[in-house]
Design a protein around this nucleic acid. Structure first.
Lengths: 112, 112
DNA sequence: CCGTTCCATTGACAGTTGTCTATGGGTTTG
DNA sequence: CAAACCCATAGACAACTGTCAATGGAACGG
């Protein structure tokens, strides 16, 4: 029964008891921060569902946000390693990163 | 070949072409925001690994943060519906929420 | 070569977030 | 009751974030 609370002794609170998994936490948090925004989450979802790289101008049209804001959000996804860009002529085409970590891939499969 | 970029016509950029899945995005983002912090992510991980509810004083001891800050982080996890509390005497025991949405559960399985 | 188109960067600004100190409330113990 | 203990809330403050307008750079077309 998981809800049966452990016994405690007053004043003996707070031994350093919790095993924390500090490794990879920061990297994980960076990915979560990148995804924790409505615009960026929808961007990633659209890229994941698309069979082709998507021109960023389409995102500029799809969201009610200025072009610099869209560019800014995409830059955050780039910095997090989630997306990659191919420039062709005056256009910039984005896609999900080719070599996502398996955990990150699994995360996207759950999310979008 | 997913990297073959689509053709474009100059000036015809930005048709309203991207199908966005607006539903549930905000709810999803709320969960992601709650998890997108090193302290909170480790808290959730510790709760997930623990077979018993964990006294919040243990978190106060485990992290190099003040007691109100720990309480504040746990409140954020509560507000996001990720954890639940049982009070007993002067102690507050936290655990993962009993009825997490399947998607949220899957998210935690990937993350922690 | 010059204007047009698309994209990224910069700078500014308001709103949110993480942290602390201070305080108060509830529970147990002397 | 009074003191000690644990926890949550309130207030303050610095740091970060999301947004926009303005600017500049690169590529294309006449």
């Amino acid at each position: 029964m998981k809800t049966a609370v452990p016994e405690r002794v007053k004043g003996v609170c707070c031994p350093p008891s919790i095993p924390l998994s500090i490794a990879k936490v920061d990297a994980c948090v960076d990915v979560l921060k990148a995804l924790a925004d409505p615009t960026r989450l929808q961007m990633v979802g659209a890229l994941k569902r698309s069979s082709q790289p998507v021109c960023i101008c389409d995102f500029t049209a799809a969201f009610d946000l200025s072009q610099p804001t869209i560019s800014h959000h995409m830059a955050k996804l780039r910095d997090a390693g989630l997306v990659e860009v191919t420039k062709r002529g005056i256009w910039a085409y984005y896609r999900l990163a080719d070599r996502l970590e398996p955990r990150t891939r699994a995360l996207l499969d759950v999310l979008v």
